[in-house]
């Protein structure tokens, strides 16, 4: 896929945000907050960073792979997959509805192109990404494996089992990102279960750690992912602390856990859409 310019990427982001709020509104459920916050990251990955093939092949030999561990932010992923050609964006209308391939949390059961494993029960994606990265090494496939986790998800024990194992097995073809938005369902992560110094923790586990100070600035996201890529191949996995604002792009959703998992009503939808330019045509 041809790499887009930053202006083009910003246009895609605007449309993806429209898709997110419309999808969640359409079924009156789903998770808009972190989907909006991670839009720049997903758009950069799929339209700029990764080598990938929209003619989906589950094994992805010779391609970069992406895994979503915090599966509840499926709206942003589905939108980006469809906008980058994996399936018709009209199918976004079916999100969370009966007989849809777009399950509430990503799944492989309905063969949705772009999804390689189910996620939703938190804490599992990093382990999967490590396995897929090891398979690439065994296959002499030099492409990269990406995975995104949530910050609340860092409270799961399996994350730290995986964190310990990747440096041990020298999984240096892996870029893991954590969406650090400081929010989870019950409130700010600091109040629910303080994560403290994630950078020191991951460094202590043997990872190369980089920080994206503003994950909603497309220039910073590109620079961070380029930097991460440059650190690969040196015996260590790379962790990207991606600081984002939950709900970014819609003024009344920004920075609060209240929009983690609820849908806008008709009026709120209109208000949100008025802040987001339609750039690629609504589905």
């Amino acid at each position: 896929m041809e790499k887009l310019s930053t202006d083009q990427l910003k246009n895609v982001c605007s449309q993806v945000r429209r898709d997110i709020v419309r999808m969640v509104h359409g079924c009156q459920s789903g998770h808009p907050g972190a989907s909006l916050g991670c839009t720049e990251f997903f758009v950069t990955l799929y339209f700029h960073q990764m080598k990938h093939n929209k003619d989906f092949n589950l094994d992805g030999i010779g391609e970069d792979l992406f895994f979503l561990s915090n599966g509840h932010i499926s709206p942003v992923w589905y939108s980006v997959l469809s906008r980058s050609g994996y399936f018709d964006s009209k199918e976004l209308y079916t999100f969370r509805k009966i007989d849809s391939r777009l399950q509430g949390h990503p799944a492989t059961e309905e063969n949705l192109p772009g999804v390689r494993i189910a996620s939703g029960s938190l804490g599992q994606g990093l382990s999967v990404a490590i396995g897929a990265a090891l398979a690439k090494k065994l296959n002499n496939d030099d492409r990269t494996v990406y995975v995104l986790m949530g910050d609340g998800e860092q409270q799961e024990g399996q994350i730290w089992e995986a964190a310990m194992s990747a440096p041990h097995h020298k999984v240096d073809n892996l870029i893991a990102s954590i969406d650090v938005n400081g929010q989870q369902i019950d409130g700010p992560t600091k109040e629910v279960m303080d994560l403290r110094d994630l950078k020191s923790k991951w460094e202590a586990f043997g990872w190369e750690v980089i920080v994206t100070e503003n994950g909603n600035d497309i220039h910073q996201v590109i620079a961070a992912l380029d930097k991460a890529k440059g650190l690969l191949g040196n015996g260590k996995p790379v962790l990207n602390l991606l600081h984002t604002d939950m709900g970014y792009g819609v003024d009344f959703m920004v920075g609060t856990h209240k929009w983690h998992g609820i849908a806008p009503n008709d009026e709120q939808l209109e208000k949100a859409l008025s802040q987001l330019e339609e750039t690629l045509g609504d589905y």
């Binding site: 094994d59 382990s127 999967v128 065994l138 296959n139 089992e161």
Partner: peptide
Amino acid sequence: ANMMGMAAGLTIG
């Protein structure tokens, strides 16, 4: 837990 996840990932490829 990590072993099961890694195993699942290894099948991809």
